[in-house]
Every structure is written in structure tokens, then in C-alpha cells.
Nucleic acid binder design. Structure first.
Lengths: 336, 336
DNA sequence: CTGAAAGCGCTTACAG
DNA sequence: CTGAAAGCGCTTACAG
């Protein structure tokens, strides 16, 4: 491997000049730059990143904790997210460093260690939970980070974040069902203790109220994000004295559970009862008819995250960006 | 951030001794070690990895190219694989560095650059394709790597690999269906040009022949790994003059497509026609009945990959490890 | 515009 | 068992 010194010798300039050719080419006279560039190419020189990082104390690596795959809770769009995050990081010359850590406060020593040993410059947080302790901790340690998702605390959120307007997404779905003639729209959610669930629920509820549709007893809280829970929730909405003619589900998984239940009862999803999901995961096209769902703008999210993390240090208030999702209409929400 | 020098001053020893306390503690007298250790803890010292890497020229980072998510080809177990790979790397003090690259030979300059600039020590390859050009190229450049999956060339494969016995997996599935009373078992695969497809097909075919079951006209080659293709393939197996009573699919996606088709025809998957998949992806429990499928030993694969990559340099022949999958029996293959 | 020199924070023969 | 010193390959004020 050629070094800066060898290139300098070859081009008959000082190492400083070669370094400038790479990092500040405008400082060189055109002919010098050309000569140096030729030497660089000839010797196939690549700057050693470790040496650079040691000097500048910036590693250009961003830490991301891979969520563990516990009990059926699959991260169906994680591959898309990771690819987008990686691509976004690369547009700034950075890369993603993956690591595992215990969830919650127990994992903070891992984050701390990674940063202290200069393996990463900062972190992108995802799988953000309600009252997630990581944000406050990192902020306190002055470790750079940006969060995908909110912590849903009452007070102001520590540090910058990017999130998707879940309420807006569910409002879109609800309005779409209304436009398709549905007048009794149920909601399949998670327990209220989840800020994300509460947010999406609000979108459905407010829209129903606005449209003059009933909401009482039409929101079911599933215990976990599984097909079985979705089916169970749908069953309770269908067994009510006045059954629903549409279901807005907080996730694709719950939506598919609901469709399975419809199927079991000989009801046609989309014509008898319309169903919508959330995430546009690969699951959405498993079923027939395919699932209408709310898609998060993954590429945009990734770019915003990288932009915030690598941009100039926060002036005053940390960045808070709320992105709009998109409704992907498919067969499961055919007009009734 | 404390440095080695500061710790040395605090413990009243040389920097060399502190370094030894960290990397070769047996060289210190117990009382010295204790004193140094106390100083390290007191100052909350963490060795700067960049400085270390610069000196040792080992970054303890392993490159992994995140597959791009093109057109419906979801990588449904990628989150599991990445988590396993990351955890396995961490047991050796290493981490995974993610990057994107064009597929095939076009991407090699990215691999080369990452290695030349010392961002990674080597690579784990996955999404290995038939005649994958990466292996030969990396081997030629003497860049360390290990492959998950074979290149299926006629000649010997460049470099070490870990793979799962696909033929064995499909043989298990076929035998299981036979044990459940099935006597006309179809196969849903991909075109023969894929080594992986050929391997799995062989497992089904050889087992059928061994059991005295028919195989002629019972293997359908789907054009791509989608639900629609699975459904189409199943349709052709069901429309034959002598319809099948079971289907071994090369992937969960094809299997679910097949189940959708059965459903559409009013046939009960599992009782009328048994179906098996491959991968035990999250999809397997979407359907009702749940899908019987062949599970790859993800954690073991990850450990073997890291073990090979970080182990002593190859003596002579590169490591070649073929792991056995496991059949996960669920409702879709209920006895007929 | 160009160069000589210091230094980032480690590790590692080499002496003692 | 311990220490003084060189050096890994860069970048960056500072002079000229």
C-alpha cells in the first residue's frame, strides 16, 4: 500500500501538498495538482482512514443498534430502512457501524463505550419507545445522536428527531374509507401506553368525529403486534351488535390478522369489510386482495436523519422533522 | 478523554506498562496491575481504537454489503441474519460495517476501496449468486472474505464458505409429506440456472425417486420469487390431469403464493393439499394454517462465518462448511 | 503556493 | 518486571 510520503516523493512535492491535493485542491497550482493527481493514480494511493481519524478525531462512522428479533416481532421494513440509511450516509462519505445492545438503560454503557473508544462519531436511534431512556442519557453525555421516532414524553424531547405523522397517516386511511362509502370504521391498535399507538389512534378518532362517524367502542387495543391479536381484535369488532364495515389497523401485521379473520368467516376483505394497514411491508402483497396501507417515506427519513446528525451542531433548538406518509391504495379497501 | 499517557502518569508507570495491563496483563506484577487497573477505572480510560488500528493495521471491522430491496424481493430474514452476524462479531471484539455497492463485478471497486482505506479488515458475502464474480476477485486481490452461500461453479470455489444443505432440507420436507400419506408431491422452484434452486430441486427429486414417487412433470420453475408466481405455479400443478396432493416450495414466498391459490379454489391447505416452504420467515405464521418450513440455523451460520474470517489464515484448502437445516412442522402439512 | 515539523494515541521491539 | 523511544500515516498551524 502506497503512503502519502511515497506519493510525495514520486510527485516531488511535500506530503503537505499531497494532503492538500486530496482535501483542499484549490490551494494548489493547477500544474502541481495535476502532477500530484497523476502520482496518486499511478501508485493507486488510498488515504489510510485510521491515520486520518486519529488526527482529526472524526471516524465518519455512525452507530446503529440492530434490533433483536424477539418472539415474532419481525421488523419487516428493516432491510429497506438499513439500505436507505446506509445509502444516505454514503452520500456524505460516512458508513454505518452495526452493534447490539441490551434494550433500555442497560444498553447505554455499550453506546458510551463505542463513542469513547472512537468507533463512532454518533448514533442513529430507532425502535424508539415511549419514555425511551436513551435520548436523555446521550444528550447528557453530549454524545451526538438523532432519533427516528419520538419518545412521547410530556416535556420537550431531548435531542433532534425525525418522525412520520402517524395521526396524519391514519386520518388519510380513514378518509379514504369514508370516500369509499364506509360509515362504521373500527380501529385496531395497541395499548394506550404507546405514544405511537396513541398518535395513530388520534388520527382515526379525530377524522371519524369530523366526518360524523361513530367511535364509541370501535377502538380495540391488541396486546401485541401479531396476526393472532389482529384476528382477535377484528373478531370483537365484527361480533358487536352493530358490526363494522371497515377496519383501520395500526400495522400491516394486525391488518393481515384481521383479513385472516374475515376470510375465516367467509367475508370478502375489500368488498364486505375494507381493511387498511400501516408500513407497506412486504406482507401487503401476500394477501389477496392486496392490502391498502400507509407507507412511510423511508428514503427521505434516512436522508433527514443523516442530514441532522452530520449537519452543523445544533444552534439552539434541536431539529424536529415530521414527515408525511403516503396512502398506498390496493384491493383491500375497495369501495363498499 | 483520558489518554494512555495520563493513566501512566496517574499510576506512576510508563505508558508501555499501561498498554500491557490492557493487552498482556500477565506481564505485570500483580500489585502493579492492580494499581494500573485502578487508575484506568478512576480516569474512565478507554483506548482510542483509531490509534490502535493505525499501529496494528487491524480495524476489527467486517464489511457487509446491504442488499438493495429491488422490486418485491424482500429479504425477510435479513434482520435476523444481521443481528446474528453482529452478535457473533462482537464475541470476538469486532463489529459490522455496512455499505452499499452495485451488484456483481461493478461493485468490486467499492470493496477494494473499503479495504484499501482500511475501513474494514475483510468481508462477509451473502446474497451469493450463481457464478458470483466477487469471490474470485477478492481472492485474487488477497482481500480476506468468507461467503454465506456457494457460487455453484463447476470448479473449486474461490475462498471459504458456509452454506446450508438445501437438498437435505427439501429431502426432509419431502419425506415428511410422504410420512403424512402424500403420494404425489410437486415442486415449486426457480429456473435451473440458479445453483441454489438446482440444489433444492435435487433434494426433492432424489427423495421422490427413492420413495418410488413420480417426479415427471411435477417440478414447476417460477420466474421470480413472488406470491403471484407461486400461485401460478401451484395452479399448473393443480390443473394437471393427475393433480398433486402436496407441494414442496423452494421459498416461503412461493409457498404462500401456492396457499393463496389453494384458498382461491376452496381447497384447504394442509388437509386437501399439503404445502411446505423454506426459510421460516415471519411470513410462515401469517397464514392459517401456519406454514411448515425449513429453517436455516442462522445463529450457527453467523458464528461459523465470523469464526472462519477471524480465525488463523487458511492453511491449505479454504474452509467449507455445510450446515444442516431444520424442518419446522406446522399446520400446512397436516397428514392427508 | 509550497515545505519542514509537530503531534494525534497507541504498540512494540529493544534495553535494562 | 519495567521504561525510553521509535513509528504507524495522516493533518495542520506556522513559516517562507
Amino acid at each position: 500500500m502506497a503512503t502519502l510520503k511515497q506519493v510525495a516523493a514520486h510527485a516531488d512535492v511535500s506530503v503537505q501538498t499531497v494532503s492538500n491535493a486530496l482535501n483542499a485542491p484549490h490551494r494548489l497550482r493547477p500544474d502541481t495538482l495535476e502532477r500530484v493527481t497523476r502520482s496518486i493514480e499511478l501508485l493507486n494511493y488510498r488515504p489510510n482512514r485510521n491515520a486520518r481519524s486519529l488526527r482529526t478525531s472524526a471516524v465518519e462512522l455512525i452507530g446503529y443498534c440492530v434490533p433483536s428479533w424477539h418472539g415474532g416481532q419481525a421488523h419487516l421494513v428493516m432491510d429497506q430502512f438499513l439500505h436507505a440509511l446506509c445509502a444516505a450516509a454514503e452520500t456524505t462519505g460516512r458508513h454505518i457501524l452495526l452493534f447490539t445492545a441490551p434494550s433500555g438503560a442497560d444498553g447505554m454503557s455499550v453506546y458510551d463505550d463505542l463513542h469513547a473508544r472512537r468507533l463512532v462519531d454518533g448514533f442513529v436511534l430507532s425502535q424508539t419507545e415511549t419514555h425511551d431512556p436513551r435520548h436523555g442519557w446521550l444528550k447528557e453525555q453530549a454524545i451526538p445522536f438523532v432519533s427516528f421516532g419520538r419518545v412521547w414524553k410530556e416535556s420537550t424531547q431531548p435531542g433532534p428527531y425525525v418522525d412520520v405523522d402517524g395521526a396524519g397517516g391514519c386520518a388519510m386511511a380513514t378518509r379514504h374509507l369514508y370516500d369509499g362509502g364506509r360509515r362504521r370504521i373500527g380501529f385496531l391498535g395497541w395499548p394506550r401506553t404507546s405514544g405511537l399507538a396513541e398518535d395513530r389512534l388520534t388520527g382515526w378518532r379525530d377524522t371519524c368525529v369530523e366526518l360524523g362517524l361513530p367511535v364509541d367502542g370501535l377502538a380495540v387495543h391488541c396486546v401485541e403486534d401479531t396476526f393472532d391479536e389482529g384476528a382477535r381484535g377484528a373478531a370483537s369488532l365484527l361480533d358487536a351488535s352493530e358490526p363494522v364495515d371497515a377496519i383501520v389497523a395500526l400495522s400491516d401485521v394486525l391488518a393481515l390478522g384481521a383479513m385472516r379473520e374475515l376470510n375465516r368467516r367467509g367475508l370478502a376483505a375489500g368488498t364486505d369489510v375494507a381493511v387498511t394497514g400501516f408500513d407497506d411491508s412486504p406482507l401487503a402483497s401476500v394477501v389477496s386482495p392486496a392490502l391498502t396501507t400507509v407507507r412511510q417515506p423511508i428514503d427521505l427519513i434516512a436522508h433527514e436523519l443523516i442530514d441532522i446528525l452530520t449537519g452543523p451542531a445544533e444552534s439552539e433548538a434541536p431539529a424536529e422533522r415530521l414527515l408525511q406518509p403516503e396512502l398506498i391504495v390496493r384491493g383491500s379497501s375497495a369501495p363498499g
